[in-house]
Nucleic acid binder design. Structure first.
Ligand code: NAD
Ligand code: NAD
Lengths: 251, 251
DNA sequence: CCGATTTTGTTCTCACGTTCACAAGCTCCT
DNA sequence: AGGAGCTTGTGAACGTGAGAACAAAATCGG
């Protein structure tokens, strides 16, 4: 069944700027570690030092860095400033990216007040909400604007990244509007699966999921044999009396 | 299905409650999808239906569910309520887990105001901060308490999960205090790598990292050949004039 | 009661990610 | 100059995860 491909089966897709996704997800961590070292006045660091600071093992770190090029010096280590710049360039945060936040409720307010974006390559250009009671509110040095202005803002400021902090209900609709306006990367905090066309990247942050993963392991720790026993094969329809369980979809 | 008897050499470690980590991370998504279906009054769903609702492919979903047991019916599908309960039980959210939040600033306030925890298996039992100006503040039906009361609260309410929303600086110290008090699962929002002893689980949520991952792909999309060229092998020490780049470690 | 139809549970194979281990390369000391 | 001592970069082994494919089991219509 093996179709005759040119690429050897075992060979990694390495070249042509193809950095493995798992590595991409760690580069920002390395970047932060390098910035911390730099701020401490450390000019050179070995892969072991860096790995400790980033919380990974050193072989993995070296392999990750090797995808970017050969930026270390054998017997010495890595020049902190130089490597920091190379990683920043690879990620694309040597320039600032314009970001819009949609849904200025609890979470949107927290993000709007957060000062950590500017120093990490992002610039919030607009806070948008559909609630007339919120529009016009001042948050830091920004003002909440009408979601209807979205297209205009995206075009004017070349916005390519959107953050969704609306309730789950309107999230897909908001997402569609963002995509239609030209946004091609979305960070979603609403607890729904959003669908987007090819070419649009989406990442989600879901606090409840994180807690549930912790709960799973926690249960494993405490009650190793304390799992409640439950009927394995009930009648297929009509199961009265099952306890109400977590996992809701409300906003 | 085959009862766990003498395990064949090549067979995966299936039973004995060994669920792959990748599967564990998806179970909460299935749980949410099932709750949504249930709320729509749908009693039965095929793996295809569920997979669509959860945003995964159906083979993966079936394999994931098979780790929990054989809860479907061939030719029919899965009973929504029953499967929902089984997943909730496996994750451990048929009971409520007590949670403390430390650091009631921007983000801590947002989490404290969030109503989505109660319906997903978690109960916030305390909001803690070290700032005297905050202690005593009312948020919803809770009051911010002194971080010094931590040990007492953890013991009284059997708290096993802690959420850290302090700045990066004090995060490790706060983490140590949590662990010493008996907390064995931690969700960290501060942009630092926390170190914890064996037996303590830690998960992190880092917004800047998520945005940087999006930025990487965004850069790939737009400027396929527009990567700035840069000297590949500079003198190892003293690199004046490199642009200042993102990735800071500030609070 | 039987065959057609549907859908699960599982097997097999390939791709991806992690870790080990070590030759290659650099610095420093004698 | 030459050897000792480090540290990088990478090949190879190993482990985990994803997806295609299909046999086994259940329903349903005749
Ligand atoms: N607050 C948290 O700590 C927290 C935690 C986990 C997940 N979440 C999720 O994050 C999202 C936001 O949470 P929140 O607590 O900030 O909610 P919120 O209700 O406080 O804020 C939602 C905001 O979105 C706005 N909005 C609603 N529909 C809109 C539309 N169509 N277009 C533009 N704006 C619209 C509302 O006006 C409101 O200001 C929710 O999906 C929630 O489930 C929040
Ligand atoms: N706000 C955001 O949107 C956002 C986004 C990404 C990351 N973060 C990270 O989340 C964390 C919190 O952000 P924030 O904006 O809420 O910060 P914040 O400064 O508003 O709040 C931090 C709170 O922690 C408290 N605190 C400080 N030291 C403490 C200690 N030792 N013990 C107990 N409490 C202590 C402070 O009193 C303050 O109330 C930070 O690490 C930040 O980098 C925040």
């Amino acid at each position: 069944m093996t179709p005759a491909r040119s690429r050897r089966p075992g060979a990694p897709t390495r070249t042509e700027r193809g950095i493995p996704e798992a590595t991409v997800a760690r580069l920002p961590v390395y970047l932060r570690a390098l910035t911390a070292l730099s701020d401490s006045g450390i000019a050179t660091a070995s892969s072991e030092d860096l790995a400790t600071a980033a919380g990974v093992n050193s072989a993995k770190l070296r392999k990750d860095l090797s995808y970017l090029g050969s930026y270390g010096t054998r017997g010495v280590g890595y020049d902190v400033e130089y490597l920091r710049y190379q990683i920043a360039r690879e990620i694309g945060v040597t320039q600032d990216w314009a970001v819009v936040i949609v849904g200025i409720g609890n979470l949107g307010h927290a993000l709007a007040n957060y000062s950590g974006f500017g120093t990490r390559g992002f610039r919030i250009v607009a806070l948008l909400d559909a609630d007339p009671a919120l529009i016009g509110e001042q948050i830091g040095d920004m003002v909440v604007r009408d979601f209807a202005e979205l297209e205009e803002i995206v075009a004017a400021d070349r916005v390519s990244i959107g953050v969704i902090t609306t309730p789950a209900g309107p999230a897909q609709e908001v997402c569609d509007r963002l995509v239609a306006a030209g946004v091609t990367s979305i960070l979603n905090f609403a607890p729904v699966v959003l669908s987007v066309p090819d070419g649009v990247d989406i990442r989600k942050v879901d606090l409840s999921i994180e807690l549930q993963i912790l709960a799973y392991h926690e249960q494993r720790k405490s009650g190793e044999a304390a799992l409640p026993e439950v009927p394995e094969l009930p009648a297929i329809n009509g199961l009265p009396g099952l306890p109400s369980v977590g996992g809701g979809v409300g906003a």
